[in-house]
């Protein structure tokens, strides 16, 4: 990676790291803790990381984030809440302006739909949309073939669309 500095790495990959950790721990604070730990290690290993190509660096960060998250869950530091929708803990009980309420409802509807996907499809959706990884990168990290990833993405999107439509229809009936 040319012109590599800690700030460059952080601005480029902090989102990937955060959501990679979140995918495992499913808690905002826990994911933030792990993101902090990953970049602490990155800072301490800058001399080695500066020799890596972009793809290798991204892969290193993803692996460290995932491993730390899995360790954290194993040690019980952060309880794994697999049934909790993405971002559910940020919901707030204060009255919200209408626009914000609509946004929150949409976010929660999308998160619930994602939670209803099977494990593989959920992982692929999280890595693709939240960690912003390409199909190639997901294939490299998960070992799933690119063809499978593409077909899973199409199928997952269709399922989410169906779930959102059904939820919207339900809301309308109420």
């Amino acid at each position: 990676m040319s012109d590599l500095s800690f700030d460059n790495i952080y601005s480029e990959y902090s989102r990937l790291v955060y959501w990679a950790a979140y995918r495992v721990v499913a808690q905002k604070e826990a994911a933030e803790d792990i993101t902090q730990q990953v970049f602490e290690r990155a800072y301490l290993n800058m001399d080695k990381l500066s020799e890596l190509a972009d793809a290798q660096l991204k892969s290193w960060l993803y692996r460290v984030a995932t491993n730390l998250a899995l360790d954290s869950v194993r040690k019980g530091k952060h309880e794994l809440l697999s049934d909790e929708p993405v971002g559910a803990e940020i919901a707030d009980t204060d009255p919200l302006p209408e626009a914000e309420l609509i946004k929150k409802q949409r976010q929660e509807a999308v998160q619930r739909a994602i939670q209803q996907l099977d494990e593989t499809s959920r992982t692929i959706i999280m890595l693709h949309y939240f960690s912003e990884m390409t199909v190639n990168e997901i294939a490299a990290q998960t070992g799933i073939s690119q063809g499978t990833i593409k077909s899973r993405l199409v199928r997952a999107r269709n399922i989410i669309k169906e779930l959102l439509t059904a939820e919207a229809d339900g809301n309308e009936e109420i």
């Binding site: 952080y10 602490e40 993405v86 949409r106 976010q107 999107r157």
Partner: peptide, 21 residues
């Protein structure tokens, strides 16, 4: 999906995480 991911990402305190790291 992209919009939702971006919005939820925007709620993360990345500057604070960077400082702590």
């Amino acid at each position: 999906l992209k919009l939702t991911a971006d919005e939820l990402t925007a709620e993360v305190d990345f500057a604070g995480i960077r400082e702590r790291a």
